[in-house]
């Protein structure tokens, strides 16, 4: 005798993120006089990348001393107070990952 199997109801195991929406910041057309944040992810040689980028910009624009921050760990985000500092003190920020 044929049997009819009840359908199986499976529960979805996944969690998805909801993409945050944000607008791109307005890019300045001239960097002269603007403070740049140099954000180092904490891995070796990221400082070289950042310093090289900053020096190249200095050849094009008259720039003040940058604001520098380095993460203690490459796999953790910057602390909120660091992010706040960059937002308050800098007009643009450059990040680098090294290795």
């Amino acid at each position: 005798m044929a049997t009819t199997l009840n359908p199986m109801v499976l529960i979805d195991p996944t969690v998805t993120t909801i993409a945050a929406s944000s607008d791109m910041a307005i890019r300045p057309t001239n960097l002269t006089g603007l403070t740049i944040g140099l954000l180092n992810n904490g891995k070796a040689k990221a400082d070289i990348i950042l310093d090289t980028a900053y020096n190249m910009l200095c050849e094009l624009y008259d720039l003040p001393e940058p604001v520098r921050h380095s993460k203690g760990s490459a796999s953790q985000p910057f602390a909120q107070d660091v992010i706040d500092n960059v937002v308050n003190e800098c007009r643009i920020a450059i990040t680098a990952i090294g290795d």
Partner: peptide
């Protein structure tokens, strides 16, 4: 609260889990 998926039998369900990347 999670989404539910309807499958007809265990064999199909096992394959479905593969197809969904679970």
């Amino acid at each position: 609260e999670s989404e539910k998926h309807i499958l007809k039998d265990p064999s199909e369900a096992i394959e479905y889990c593969y197809q969904m990347g679970w």
